[in-house]
């Protein structure tokens, strides 16, 4: 029944806020392939429509907010901070987050050291903690240049580092996925864990920015 409108749109369609509507626009070649591959996998008993919907929901639920809560916990709880540094995946589990195979390695910024993450060979990213990576993380400019001129690249993100700070670049070449523990901003002594988590941006956990300063705070 070509060209008949679907009787009902799928339950999944519209259930995911924030993605673009592609239901009524002409299919590209690759979208046609997506339909074919998906239907073949279902016909072969490899998956089901419900499993695909569940996988999408699972990914949608992962976001930088999870990483931010983990960092805030490390800022206020030194035992947890040391655990996060020693075994990131175990710390995730203790915190109630499911690593789902993710081998997490946390690296910590200090007054003298700034860490930043890249994957030059593809675009490895701690997606089971932070969700899907931003576009710029996957593109040529970042992947090519960060390992050679990290200070110039960080400046393009608005982060100027003093010469006396050591920059440590981490190239995710194999099994580990990285998260930066940014420095806890000044003026946050009285903040709650939830308030602190609100200062931890995605970019600060990749290492291309600092954590945000609390509203109204001036150095």
């Amino acid at each position: 029944m070509p060209h008949d409108p679907p009787e009902t749109e799928s339950p999944s369609h519209g259930a995911h806020v924030g993605h673009l509507d592609d239901f009524h626009t002409p299919l590209t070649y690759w979208q046609t392939l997506e339909i074919a591959v998906r239907e073949l996998l279902i016909e072969k008993g490899i998956t089901t429509g419900a499993e695909i919907a569940a996988a999408i929901d699972s990914m949608d639920r992962r976001s930088p907010a999870d990483g931010a809560r983990l960092i805030a916990k490390a800022w206020i709880d030194d035992r947890f901070r040391r655990k996060l540094l020693a075994d990131g995946s175990a710390a995730m589990t203790e915190f109630g987050l499911n690593p789902a195979g993710l081998r997490l390695l946390a690296v910590e910024n200090t007054p003298g050291i700034h860490n930043v993450i890249v994957c030059t060979l593809c675009s490895c990213y701690p997606r089971n903690l932070l969700g899907l990576p931003p576009d710029w993380y996957k593109e040529r400019a970042y992947r090519s240049r960060l390992v050679r001129t990290p200070r110039v690249v960080l400046a393009e993100f608005g982060l100027e580092l003093p010469a006396e700070t050591t920059v440590r670049v981490h190239d995710s070449t194999a099994d580990m996925r990285y998260i930066v523990i940014p420095q806890r901003p000044a003026g946050t002594t009285d903040m709650t864990e939830d308030e602190l988590a609100g200062l931890v941006t995605r970019d600060s956990m990749i290492g291309v920015s600092r954590a945000s300063s609390p509203r109204g705070f001036r150095e």
Binding site: V147, P150, V169, H170
Partner: peptide, 19 residues
């Protein structure tokens, strides 16, 4: 070591996983 002593900041470091 990677880029030569006239690189951006010779004492900055790069960590990678190698088999």
């Amino acid at each position: 070591e990677i880029w030569g002593e006239y690189c951006e900041a010779p004492n900055d470091t790069l960590d990678a996983e190698v088999f």
